[in-house]
């Protein structure tokens, strides 16, 4: 049997807005094994991004236990969480989240920068990944000079540069036409086939169908799994 990379045990997330408490996630139980490709579906506002942020150690659940590689995440310090994000996780955000004043190459290199790696090594690797996502000709450009698809590819390159064991992609094709979307997905699936665990949030059933496992979320609960 394959090793379990993620185990969510009765996870809940409550945001308190003054007097009102908003329960965004309720009693989530989920386990993901290494090398798995998982799709998360659900309507807008159902809590998908919130769950992904928890998986990515960016947000902390208000309830339940999260084990990553059998380690309790809730007991870790801010610094240790940063370290996990830096070494193990590749984020592809719903809204690209590139830094506007940096070039494509610099954006791609950020995760390695925070590992304290030498500048020249960062540059080489960033260039390698820019080639991989087909942006070798655009490395000196700023995000504002790129199309949506190109920005998303920069974001993917950035998510891969630290050779993460877990790739978390939040609607990676949401802002793209179907053709570009396909390209991006095949890139991610290729990485999954190389052994990286892949979690993709999507609204598109065609994209979800590319994975063996799909979970559906509604109002912060997993309602269906196949």
């Amino acid at each position: 049997m394959k090793k379990e990379i993620i185990n969510l045990n009765n996870i809940g997330k409550v945001y308190s807005l003054g007097q009102v408490e908003v329960s965004v996630l309720k009693g989530i139980n989920l386990s993901i094994t290494t090398g798995e490709h998982l799709s998360i579906m659900g309507p807008s506002g159902s809590g998908k991004t919130t769950m992904l942020n928890i998986l990515g150690c960016l947000d902390k659940p208000t309830e339940g236990e999260y084990l990553m590689e059998e380690k309790k995440i809730s007991t870790l310090s801010d610094e240790e969480l940063s370290e996990i994000r830096s070494r193990k996780i590749g984020f592809v955000f719903q809204t690209f989240n590139l830094i506007p004043q940096l070039t494509v190459l610099e954006n791609i290199g950020i995760p390695l920068f925070y590992q304290g790696i030498d500048e020249s090594v960062i540059q080489d690797k960033a260039l390698e990944l820019a080639k991989l996502v087909g942006l070798a000709a655009r490395i000196k450009h700023r995000p504002s000079e790129l199309s949506g698809g190109e920005r998303q590819r920069v974001a993917i390159a950035r998510a891969l540069i630290n050779q993460p064991i877990l790739i978390l992609a939040d609607e990676p094709t949401g802002n793209l036409d179907s053709e570009t979307g396909k390209e991006i997905m095949s890139l991610l699936i290729h990485l999954n086939e190389e052994g990286k665990t892949l979690v993709v949030i999507t609204h598109d059933p065609k994209i979800a169908d590319q994975s063996k496992r799909i979970i559906r979320i509604l109002d912060g609960k997993i309602i269906d799994e196949n």
């Binding site: 990515g56 960016l58 801010d78 610094e79 940063s82 370290e83 994000r85 830096s86 070494r87 984020f91 955000f93 989240n97 590139l98 830094i99 506007p100 950020i110 995760p111 925070y114 590992q115 950035r158 630290n162």
Partner: peptide, 16 residues
């Protein structure tokens, strides 16, 4: 602020 969030998400520690 957003840049700070991005950097933190990508592994920047507080001291960075």
């Amino acid at each position: 602020t957003r840049e700070i969030g991005i950097r933190r998400a990508l592994g920047a520690k507080r001291r960075d």
